[in-house]
Design a protein around this nucleic acid. Structure first.
Length: 604
DNA sequence: TCGGTCATTG
């Protein structure tokens, strides 16, 4: 499946990336020979405890200890020592276990230290507990540990608060996170670079990038120098917001202050550039990064593989995988999933299955994403049986289908013309512990509407309105479209008119749905009224808006108005879409066809 | 000794 790794394929990759200056021979092949030290040998060769602890400390600090079993092995050896190593040594190891994302393990080890080993808790170990709880999204428990801290007479530190601020951010509650920073400062603590970094990251993740930039400036005003982490966080936020040139500008600003971009900085910028099709610039950046001694790691290369797959450039994606192998990185579940997903989207289920099997044969365990992609692929070609078979299989190997899996299946049943079966799935997913989200709701409502089951859709919709779900304009638009499609123009108009009172901003899609609804019924004055007034309400009509209106006019042979609006479209630079073109051709081919339409088919 | 940056599925 993978292309043979030759210098030729590597050269092609570099050429493609816009990089021509580096000789393939200059890649540091020796880096693939670095293997993590065999811990057991390490321990045996250092029977002396001091030496053992020193090597543990060095391994922890060097980042070479990246295996949970090895870390646990260290812990258990330390636990058997007499006298016990210091709490500092235990905390060092705990910090590492948290970094490996083994949060429940970290919490139970702290418990063991306290109850079995008799090591006294302190602010540091409790901070580890709070951090673990926060990462498990159990922020409320984190706060109760803070309470315990006060009760036991331990002074929380800036680290304690930063940890909780991060916990709130992870939960998406960035408003409370900002409040906590305020609160902490009122209590006399001073936020430091990491505290600001956490908050800035939280804001970026919620899409509040300009707020994040504001805090970056604020921390500078307060005489804190943002470091590469803070800058990279903001750059990533800007890139995800589509503000790639702003991100590049910030990178220049950072460099001018003597702060060099690191692996993460480059990765964020390269992804940002790729996402907007700036392949050449991305290649130049990859070039610059390697020249300055930063080699892309598995994650960076996986981002490239994924972006290339999404662009349909599978050959180039495979070249990147070749490069990956050449630099000693084995493709992982992310790499394979990107390929699987691409093949599924191209309806190439044989290829997708082959990659899935290859992944298994190479000892890489498929995850819920791999299964969900395959289920999506089978649904896409309307093979519901295969999709259900995979669902069975994934449950058998121990995965719990998540909301994405359910939404994929529900959508599959709808597309296969079985909206009622889809509704059953929707109503039953709760029994399997999965709560529908807005996208699930959108999928099922759309499926029922398109399946001519408006009343079914409406009863679900009313139930959703009563539930805690914060329905958005997308959901309302689906219902509006369903009502229009069923000829319930009055109901649609009433709902449409009520949207502002529900605090919803009517967008171009909602307007277009209503204009389409009116036009299809020949209610052109109403449609025209909306089309001419939507701009006043802060919503610019798009190409689709004009096309649906003209299609209605053409159906009812409203020649004069059709020509008027076709002319407006041309003046505004909107193109006539395929459906409209076909209608014009049909119209021209009849006796009544007006010769004036010809100019819209063959624009000068 | 404890806190922050980059990757996949609808």
């Amino acid at each position: 499946m993978l292309p043979r790794i030759t210098y030729l394929s590597l050269f092609r990759l570099l050429h493609f990336m816009g990089t021509t200056k580096i000789s393939p021979l200059s890649f540091p092949l020796h880096s693939l020979c670095t293997k993590s030290t065999n811990i057991n040998n390490e321990i045996q060769s250092h029977s002396n405890k001091t030496h053992f602890l020193n090597s543990m400390r060095n391994l922890c600090k060097s980042g070479k200890l990246n295996n949970i079993d090895k870390a646990l092995n260290f812990f258990h050896i330390m636990a058997k020592m007499n006298p016990l190593p210091s709490v500092e040594d235990f905390t060092l190891l705990l910090g590492l276990i948290v970094k490996m994302k083994h949060y429940t393990t970290a919490i139970s080890l702290v418990k063991e230290m306290h109850s079995s080993l008799g090591i006294k808790m302190d602010t540091f170990t409790l901070n580890v507990v709070i951090n673990s709880l926060c990462h498990l999204k159990l922020v409320a428990f984190g706060f109760s540990v803070l309470g315990t801290m006060f009760k036991l007479g331990f002074e929380p530190s800036v680290v304690t608060f930063t940890t909780l601020v991060n916990g709130l951010c992870v939960k998406g509650d960035v408003g409370r996170a900002v409040e906590l920073v305020d609160h902490m400062e009122k209590m006399g603590y001073r936020s430091d670079v990491k505290a600001y970094g956490v908050l800035i990251n939280g804001l970026c993740k919620m899409g509040e990038t300009s707020e994040a930039v504001g805090w970056l400036r604020k921390m500078e005003e307060r005489n804190w120098k943002p470091n590469v982490v803070v800058y990279s966080t903001v750059m990533d936020g800007l890139c995800k917001d589509g503000l790639v040139s702003e991100a590049l500008g910030l990178c220049l600003e950072m460099s001018s202050k003597g702060i060099r971009p690191n692996l993460v900085t480059y990765t964020c910028l390269i992804q940002g550039l790729c996402n907007f099709g700036s392949w050449k610039e991305a290649g130049l950046l990859l070039d610059e990064m390697m020249k300055t001694g930063t080699m892309p790691d598995l994650q960076t290369l996986n981002i490239l593989v994924d972006v290339l797959c999404k662009e349909g450039k599978i050959m180039q994606a495979k070249s990147v995988i070749g490069f990956m192998i050449l630099t000693g990185e084995a493709p992982d579940v992310f790499t394979y999933n990107s390929l699987i997903d691409r093949y599924c989207l191209q309806n190439q289920m044989n290829e997708a299955t082959r990659v899935f099997e290859l992944m298994v044969s190479r000892g890489c365990l498929p995850d819920i994403v791999a299964y969900t992609s395959l289920i999506h692929g089978w649904c896409k070609i309307k093979n519901i049986n295969k999709a259900m078979q995979l669902l069975d299989e994934m449950v058998k190997v121990g995965f719990t289908p998540d909301v994405v899996t359910w939404t994929t299946l529900i959508s599959g049943f709808c597309q296969a013309g079985r909206p009622l079966a889809a509704k059953e799935l929707f109503l039953n997913m709760g029994k399997y512990g999965q709560v529908p989200n807005l996208q699930t709701c959108a999928v099922i409502l759309d499926g029922l509407c398109k399946g001519q089951l408006l009343s079914e859709a409406l009863s679900l919709f009313h139930a959703m309105e009563k539930s805690k779900l914060d329905l958005n304009i997308v959901i309302y638009s689906i219902i509006l479209d369903g009502m229009c499609g069923a000829g319930k123009l009055n109901d649609a108009w009433e709902l449409f008119s009520s949207l502002p009172s529900k605090g919803l901003q009517i967008n171009v899609y909602a307007y277009t749905i209503m204009i389409n609804g009116f036009s299809k019924q020949g209610l052109f004055d109403k449609a025209e009224y909306l089309l001419t007034n939507m701009e006043e309400n802060g919503c610019m009509p798009g190409s689709c808006t004009y096309n649906v209106f003209v299609q209605g006019l053409l159906t009812k042979k409203e020649t004069a108005r059709s020509i008027k609006y076709l002319t407006m479209m041309r003046d505004k630079g909107f193109s006539v879409d395929a459906t409209t073109t076909e209608m014009i051709i049909n119209y021209l081919s009849t006796d009544e066809g007006d010769i004036r339409f010809r100019e819209f088919l063959f624009p000068k």
